[in-house]
Computed example of a mutant assay.
Amino acid sequence: MVTRHIKTEIMHRVVEYNGVLYFGGLVAGDCSQDMKGQTEQICEKIDNILAQLGSSKEKIITAMIYISDFSQKSGMNEGWLKWLPPNHLPARATIGVANLGENVLVEVVISAAK
């Protein structure tokens, strides 16, 4: 059965199927921060949504991280690694994109076990 969670105007934030939570892209609320700050905000959002749905960051399976400025990638990695336990790092890809929206430096898409 497919279960949809947290409806927005254009999508559901998370779609659940067969014990896996598939997230749509998440961006920071305060885009005046650098990539590290935006990443930390996104990680906090992920924590909150996972907890709401009965999961946790230790159950993240995959992550796709879209960044608009590769010169700030180390800041993104710093925020990401500060948040995730070393023994629970998911499979991950970092993808460079030209534009994520005004002042948006990073967008994260994850899948996690419930």
Rank of each mutant, 00 (worst) to 15 (best):
G29D: 15
W80A: 01
L21F: 11
G19P: 13
E16Y: 09
V2Y: 12
F23Y: 09
I110T: 10
E16H: 14
I61A: 15
E9F: 00
C31K: 15
P90S: 06
L26R: 08
T39G: 05
G75T: 03
V20A: 05
A63W: 00
D34Q: 08
A91W: 14
D34T: 01
N87L: 07
G24H: 11
Q52W: 13
H12T: 09
G25W: 14
Q52C: 15
A113Q: 02
E102G: 10
I42T: 15
E40Q: 11
A112K: 04
E78K: 05
P86E: 00
I60S: 03
L89N: 12
N77Y: 08
K59Y: 03
L81P: 11
A28P: 11
E16F: 09
K82Y: 04
V108S: 12
S32L: 12
T62V: 09
H5A: 06
W80T: 02
T3W: 11
G75H: 02
K73W: 05
G79D: 12
E9S: 04
T94P: 12
P90Q: 07
T94Q: 03
I10N: 08
M1S: 07
S71R: 06
E78V: 00
I61N: 07
R4K: 14
E78G: 04
E78A: 03
I61S: 02
Q38W: 00
K82V: 02
H88S: 03
V109Q: 10
V108A: 15
C31F: 04
I42K: 08
K36F: 08
S55P: 02
V27M: 07
L21K: 12
R13I: 11
E102Q: 03
G25N: 04
G37T: 13
I49H: 10
T8C: 02
Q41E: 07
P90I: 07
I46T: 14
S74N: 08
I110H: 06
N87Q: 05
A51N: 15
I61T: 04
Y17A: 04
K7T: 08
L100E: 10
N18K: 01
V2C: 01
K45N: 13
I10S: 05
E9D: 11
G79L: 03
L26V: 13
S56Y: 13
Q38I: 04
S55K: 10
I110W: 01
V104E: 15
V27K: 14
D30Q: 07
L81D: 07
Q33P: 01
S32D: 07
A93N: 08
M76Y: 14
I42Q: 14
P86M: 00
K7A: 12
A98H: 06
Y66W: 08
T39Q: 05
D30K: 09
K45M: 15
I6M: 13
K45F: 14
G96E: 14
F23S: 10
P90L: 14
Q41Y: 11
T94R: 02
H88N: 11
S55Y: 05
K7R: 09
G19D: 04
I46F: 09
E58N: 15
C31Y: 14
L105V: 12
Q41V: 15
M64S: 04
M1I: 04
H88L: 01
I65D: 03
M1L: 11
S56W: 12
I46D: 06
V27A: 07
M64W: 08
Q38F: 14
P90Y: 13
